[in-house]
Computed example of a mutant assay.
Amino acid sequence: MQGRVLACTACHGKEGRATPQGYFPRIAGKPAGYLYNQLLNFRDGRRSYPQMSYLLEHLTDDYLQEIAQHFASLQLPYAQPPATQVLPQELERGRLLVQHGDAGRDIPACVSCHGASLMGAAPWLPGLLGLSRDYVGSQLGAWQTGQRHAQSPDCMAAVASKLSLQDVRSVAAWLAAQPVPAGAVPARQLPEAMPLRCGGVPGQGAAQ
């Protein structure tokens, strides 16, 4: 498998542990179901990134599942986050949205799905820590502009559509500034009551 995934690690870093400074996200240790869904999304056109689509266009579901399981099994240390130059008030705005959401705008807190530790939940929900500010911001922006989609119902598209540009900047900056505790891993089960139905979670949307 290490030989098969050389094309993956060329961008995502050795063993898939991209550093917070890089645009390409860390994939090591992410829940297998989440990784599998993203591989399907790239292959089937819901996510737009030509290099990924080209690599995956002829791969079978079973092959993609093997790749996802491989990277999910790699529990490796995270790099420390880079120093931030973002103003304290902007970071605080991000923290409030991540931890509490905004009930007045019907924006759920990130922790309500991605967990109090923000490390996600196996096997379907990704962690949000250990990612660069540019990557987080670009993905929220891609949902807002329709460049990124997930299986229907697309819960993240619904959330992103309610965020302002400043919200996106603040959330991305706060998340990127948080260190990942040693030994932190995704929760072993999904939240009991998610605020939105998400098609990437079996039983909540279209068949996988």
Rank of each mutant, 00 (worst) to 15 (best):
A173N: 10
C110P: 00
R47A: 12
T84I: 07
G115S: 13
L131D: 08
A109E: 06
A160I: 08
Q178S: 07
L6P: 03
E92C: 11
E192V: 04
G16R: 02
M52H: 09
Q51A: 15
L56P: 08
E57L: 14
P181N: 14
E57G: 06
P108V: 01
G94C: 03
A28G: 01
R95Y: 11
R93Q: 12
W143A: 01
N37M: 13
V201N: 02
S138T: 13
A193K: 12
C8E: 04
L163K: 04
A122W: 09
G137Q: 04
W174S: 05
Q139G: 04
A68C: 11
Y49S: 13
P202N: 01
Y63W: 13
P108M: 03
Q151P: 00
R17N: 15
H114K: 05
A7L: 13
P31F: 07
A206Y: 00
A122Q: 12
D102W: 10
P181S: 14
W124P: 02
W174N: 03
A182W: 04
A157Q: 11
T145D: 14
L129S: 05
T145P: 00
L91M: 10
M1L: 13
Q21L: 07
A28N: 10
T19H: 08
V171L: 09
L55V: 09
A187M: 04
L76Y: 05
D134R: 15
Y54N: 15
F42L: 02
C110Y: 08
A116E: 12
F24R: 06
A160W: 00
L91Q: 05
R93M: 09
Q85Y: 11
P191D: 02
T60V: 06
L6F: 10
G3N: 15
Q166E: 11
S53Y: 03
S117K: 13
Q166Y: 01
L128K: 07
R133H: 05
A83H: 09
R188V: 11
R93D: 04
G120D: 01
L190S: 10
P20Q: 14
I107F: 05
S53E: 10
M52Y: 11
L55D: 04
R197Q: 12
C198N: 06
P195L: 09
S152I: 02
I107T: 04
V98Y: 07
T145A: 03
P191H: 03
C155Q: 06
V111I: 15
G199F: 10
S161A: 14
L97R: 02
A206R: 09
V98E: 07
V201Y: 03
S132E: 07
Q89T: 07
